[in-house]
Design a binder for these strands. Structure first.
Length: 150
DNA sequence: GCCAACGTTGGC
DNA sequence: GCCAACGTTGGC
């Protein structure tokens, strides 16, 4: 089982929005590195942090469970959709998605500034490669963060 | 809102 | 396949 970190702008989708729904489709990802993780590695039963970016309280807001493997994403085929991709086709889909289910909201967002101060978290992809929106988290990093979350 | 970092596009 | 130009992300 693997651990992930999923970035979202809470003005669009926040941990609260995810909590309201039984299942929530993580789609519209248009980055090849993130796509490869989704297509090849994201699996039913994995856990993920929800990270709030570009907002007042930047940081990790809670935990979700991943409830599907990587699936062919639907928006890419819809000409009406903002994320329509004319270069994609049903035989050769370019983009993938997966479903998540809310698990936990932390009482306080774990701030990026705190994460940056922890030597144990120096190697997080979040720190090293700021712009990746679906990224792996090691088991050690996961345990370190969850053991300090409330 | 600024701007640095970085991903993508497209001409050659 | 290089690389300049351009667009986007995301912290501050």
């Amino acid at each position: 089982m693997s651990y992930w970190l999923l970035k979202t702008e809470p003005d669009e989708y926040s941990i609260d929005d995810i909590a309201k729904l039984d299942t929530f489709c993580w789609d519209e990802i248009r980055n090849y590195q993130a796509r490869n993780f989704i297509r090849d590695q994201v699996s039913q039963g994995d856990l993920a942090f929800i990270y709030h970016s570009s907002c007042k309280q930047v940081g990790i807001a809670g935990v979700v469970e991943i409830i599907t493997n990587g699936c062919i994403e639907q928006a890419q085929f819809n000409p009406q959709h903002a994320k329509f991709d004319p270069k994609s086709s049903q035989d050769k889909p370019k983009w993938y998605s997966f479903d998540i289910r809310f698990k936990q909201k932390f009482n306080q967002v774990i701030p990026l500034s705190w994460i940056k101060q922890q030597p144990e978290l120096n190697d997080m992809v979040l720190i090293k490669q700021g712009r990746l929106s679906v990224q792996p988290v090691s088991e050690q990093q996961w345990q370190f963060i969850t053991s300090r979350a409330k």
